[in-house]
Design a protein around this nucleic acid. Structure first.
Lengths: 239, 239
DNA sequence: CGGCCATTTGAAGGAAGTCAAGCGTAGTGG
DNA sequence: CCACTACGCTTGACTTCCTTCAAATGGCCG
């Protein structure tokens, strides 16, 4: 069941992220580790959650990339947000929730049932912060689509991903592995893949961003952040 | 304190909406009515909640329109969502939440502290459904900005507002009072006010939508819904 | 009346989309 | 080992949508 390439060390990012959202007691870390044992694999393009269906159980993403997506009647699609290792999927807090959006695996994905947080204050807080962060990213996505031009949309999204992957310990200082096609990127940014391609070239020419072989390089993340006027998402007074 | 023009009968919409989200016992209706007594007024352009600040207490909107908004460093702004009577403001469920967005009054507004839902199952459920609906509308806003052209964005938003106002008993069958300027509309739809103006004219010419004197007329809401391929937001199995 | 604000209109330019074809590379199967 | 395919990336020419800038119009209120 457990394949070599996703064994053991790859569990780390999810735990790392949660522990950074709120301090976890040792029993809470144990609860997470226990849940990580019940891992399941979801193949690329498969749905983790289907819009309109009742949500069976919330999930914790362990490895791979997923996305919330809405499909239009004419075949167009819009990715609402990306889900990375350590992110929670389908955790709404509601009693009998219907999924408001489909969640699809963009790469092969490993996930597990989200460890129950009852009686675990640290984990409860981590989930709350995670939910608040997710909402913050949704709001940011609205601003991106509503008020940024194509180049800034790309740069802004890459900075968000860099920050989030860094939180899970999955990014380098100046870049990160990026497994998505330009087509997917376009459907997340409200653009066409043709235009994404051209703007990526422009970003490379200006030295702000490089994209090749499934890897993104951001030579100067801090500089780019101020250059496009990006304000990072924060949700708690501490940190 | 209480002005004539917002007295008594205007309390109704908030209660109507909550009661439609989940069945409320008589003591729950009483709790809401009690909270409605503690009303306060917020003048147009004033902030109900300030981004980055800790949220003092969640609010229930009683009358008037508000909006969540993000301001960019260069002065541009993007409205994230509109808040209508019966909507909850700043109810995140988190312990010490920071406001992820500013909430500003678009008209003069009347609100009150959200009635506490502890031990009240119906009200608890109504709040949960309200939160889920709000998330659904945020996701819908992303699709609007990412994948619809200007005309469809306007039509789609008007249909959303018509549906939401209907839920609170504030809309007519074919229209509703609309107190916002084209400039505000533009900043919600990721457009310029000039273009909004032109597209409103186009919509009027095609007979899909009419806008005049602070009132929106939608001659055929159902027809327009299917015409632009809009799917309404649903979050619970019942209804 | 005059000032203010929102709406409307025109002309011109720019950003992004569309359509279509070419390229590169990884996989597959003969 | 080499066609053959599939898929993603790249490029060019052309169109459409939306913005920009500027000015005019119209209503409302002091």
């Amino acid at each position: 069941m457990i394949r070599e390439d996703v064994a053991h060390d790859d569990y780390a990012p999810a735990l790392v992220r949660l522990a950074r959202l709120a301090p976890l007691a040792s029993e809470e870390r144990a609860a997470v580790t226990a849940a990580l044992g019940e891992q399941r694999r979801v193949a690329q393009r498969r749905e983790l959650i289907s819009e309109g269906r009742e949500i069976a159980e919330p999930l914790l993403l362990i490895a791979g990339w997923a996305a919330r997506v809405r499909l239009l009647s004419d075949g167009r699609r819009q990715f609402l947000s990306f889900l990375l290792p350590g992110d929670l999927v389908g955790m709404s807090g509601q009693s009998r929730p219907l999924a408001v959006s489909t969640v699809v695996a963009l790469t092969d994905v490993v996930c597990c049932p989200a460890p129950p947080a009852d009686g675990l204050p640290g984990l409860t807080e981590a989930y709350a912060v995670s939910r608040a962060l997710e909402e913050g990213h949704l709001l940011h996505q609205i601003v991106r689509l509503g008020r940024l031009n194509a180049q800034d949309r790309i740069a802004d999204l890459m900075l968000e991903l860099h920050g989030r992957l860094t939180l899970a310990g999955l990014a380098d200082r100046n870049g990160f592995a990026f497994p998505l096609t330009q087509e997917v990127l376009a459907d997340a940014l409200g653009l066409t893949s043709v235009h994404v391609n051209r703007m990526l070239q422009a970003l490379r020419r200006s030295g702000d961003l490089e994209s090749r072989n499934g890897y993104i390089v951001i030579p100067d993340p801090q500089g780019l952040t101020t250059k496009i006027g990006r304000r990072p998402v924060r949700v708690t007074a501490d940190q």
